[in-house]
Write a protein that binds this DNA or RNA. Structure first.
Length: 560
RNA sequence: UGUCCGAUGGUGUAACUGGUAACACAACUGACUCUGGAUCAGUAGAGUCCAGGUUCGAGCCCUGGUCGGACAACCA
């Protein structure tokens, strides 16, 4: 039986269900995701992708992928390839419906002709500056172009010649003839076509005039018979223009619905700023694990499932929002907790010597791969007389609530024995503790009856002679400020970059990870989730920290 | 100053479409635990931007404000 969770609809679903009920689009739901191939996709796009594909799926509809490639000077195939890869990775499929606005350049050109013939568009020879100056301001109407009333025949001739390449870039444009006094700036005779002697990544040198986004987007949706054009809030004021164009041209009209874009705390989301970070070397590239890009998150160790769940949880509405990164982190922890195998790794090693353990003995300790999933089985971890533990797991003078290792105290070694600290060696010049001497209790090996003895703390460990060295990249948030975009006098977002967003250290890991491949994800017990970086090769293992484990000890520490 | 949009705990989203504010994250307690993880139980936190109005009854409707956002590329 279908369990109706009665999950409330978001405002977009409400509109769609209303349309469905009223048979507005013959019961069809057809959405699209329309990126411009001028940058990499980020988590904000993921929200839109999940929305568009998710809604279509929910209502048995379809979703197209369409590249809005109307500006050849900014666009590139590198971006179309990455965008396709990222959408597929997120788990969505546009099947055979991959389109480009450039597929419609002919139709669009013909639409322009229709407008010209109706006297609704004209060729304007003013310079960009002149057009800008005569546009008026928010409170003052604009001035009409002296070319506004050119006869239809002249416009037709001029536009044809524009297309034929008779004029240089910038010499003239095609504009809609609407209303220079409109209170909506978008309606003040917007530019429809501009001259650009630039070859296009798909149409090559076929065209030297290109439609503006506003003249391509709505009509492209119309051509594809999109029912619901879901886009972000900034296009709300453009909607009257799209409606006008579609009405004047006389073609099918989709319904546009605007929603508030995603903002995430401690990062920036604008393509321009992300590009800047890449170009200025603030990060290593679009896929730097600190970037909020899809490829960055992927490299960081995020899973598509976690991102999809995140998109679902944050909801959709029209009010501006800033989602706390901790919610994203919650989503990835929740996912990785269930699916990643556990492994022991020591980030900051401190040597422990078991004085009563035989010199040459090596035991194989059986460790559970994932306590959340028995089917993941067990593995062997070598154990010997000299071990590494984490430096912070020993305290010479422990506080009340510290239940790790300290002089005279007992602690459990995960999947192994209970040990007791007998003494320690301190470097007299630095005061640094360099070595701990312990005894182990042979009757407390995991699984033995006496191992059930209550011991407060459990530590992860590594056998010194079996440990594998690996580079570990500890990532933290890219910005120190919750909202780096917030205007602060004399500063911009780059002044808030977190200098500690990446720490590279050499850590030690148990030998079982030698079989790991790039992309593999693990939980380093008691530390966090890590994944093998793509730079990792052979003996040169590299791990990225995806996210730390929740750690209530840090809080206790802070409060003391 | 113009047009459009928005306003609900710290954050985000709900509220059977007018019936007495809920869920998640975050925070805090405690239990349990061979991960100070996970899990479980619980606590605190908004009276819904303000002022009027309609109504037996308003977060939902109306009016007027306030605050915030978007729009003045030959960008998308």
């Amino acid at each position: 039986m279908e369990e109706k969770t009665a999950k409330s609809l978001n405002f977009i679903e409400e509109i769609i269900e209303e349309d469905l009920k009223n048979q507005v689009y013959d019961g069809r739901v057809h959405t699209r995701f329309p990126p411009e191939p001028n940058g990499y996709l980020h988590i904000g796009h993921a929200k839109s992708i999940c929305l568009n594909f998710g809604i279509a799926k929910k209502y048995n509809g379809m979703t197209n992928l369409r590249f809005d490639d109307t500006n050849p000077v900014k666009e590139d195939v590198e971006y179309v390839d990455s965008i396709k890869e990222d959408i597929r990775w997120l788990g969505f499929d546009w099947e055979d419906r991959l389109f480009y606005a450039s597929d419609y350049f002919n139709e669009l050109y013909n639409y322009a002709l229709i407008l010209i013939r109706k006297g609704k568009a004209y060729v304007c020879d003013m310079t960009a500056d002149e057009i800008s100056e005569t546009r008026g301001t928010l409170s003052r109407p604009g001035k009409e172009s002296p070319y506004r009333n050119r006869p239809v025949e002249e416009n037709l001739d001029l536009f044809t010649r524009m297309r034929n390449g008779e004029f240089p870039d910038g010499s003239s444009v095609l504009r809609a003839k609407i209303d220079m006094a409109s209170p909506n700036m978008q309606m003040r005779d917007p530019v429809l076509y501009r001259i650009l002697h630039t070859s296009h990544h798909r149409t090559g040198d076929q065209w030297c005039i290109y439609p503006m986004y506003d003249f391509a987007h709505g009509q492209s949706d119309s051509i594809e018979r999109i029912t619901h054009s879901i886009c972000t809030l900034e296009f709300e004021v453009h909607r009257p223009l799209y409606d006008w164009l579609i009405r004047e041209i006389g073609i099918y009209a989709p319904r546009q619905i605007e929603f508030a874009r995603l903002n995430l705390s401690y990062t920036v989301m604008s393509k321009r700023k992300l590009l800047e970070l890449v170009q200025e070397g603030k990060v290593t590239g679009w896929d730097d694990p600190r970037m909020p890009t899809i490829c960055g998150l992927r490299r960081r160790g995020y899973t598509p499932e976690a991102i999809r769940n995140f998109a679902d949880i944050i909801g959709v509405a029209k009010r501006d929002n800033v989602i706390d990164v901790s919610l994203l982190e919650f989503c990835i922890r929740e996912d990785l907790n269930k699916r990643s195998n556990r492994v022991m790794a020591v980030i900051n090693p401190l040597k422990v010597i078991l004085d009563n353990y035989p010199e040459d003995l090596t035991e194989e300790m059986e460790a559970i791969n994932n306590p959340e999933d028995e089917s993941r089985g067990k593995r062997k971890v070598p154990f010997s007389r000299e071990l590494y533990i984490e430096k912070e797991d020993f305290m010479e003078i422990p506080s009340q609530k510290y239940f790790r290792l300290s002089p005279g105290k007992e602690v459990r070694l995960r999947s192994a024995y209970i040990i007791k600290c007998e003494s320690f060696v301190k470097d007299p010049s630095t005061g640094e503790i360099t070595e701990i001497h312990c005894t182990y209790d042979p009757k407390t090996r995991s699984g033995m009856p006496e191992s059930n003895r209550k011991v407060k703390g459990t530590l992860h460990w590594l056998s010194v002679k079996h440990a594998i060295k690996a580079e570990i990249r500890l990532y933290d948030r890219l910005f120190m400020k919750e909202n780096p975009d917030e205007a602060v006098e004399g500063k911009d977002y780059k002044d808030f970059l977190n200098p500690d967003s990446l720490k590279v250290i050499t850590g030690q890991i148990e030998p079982s990870i030698l079989r790991a491949n790039p992309g593999d994800k693990f939980q380093f017990e008691r530390i966090g989730y890590f994944c093998v970086d793509k730079d990792s090769a052979g003996n040169n293992l590299i791990f990225n920290r995806t996210v730390t484990l929740k750690d209530s000890w840090v809080k206790i520490g802070k409060n003391q």
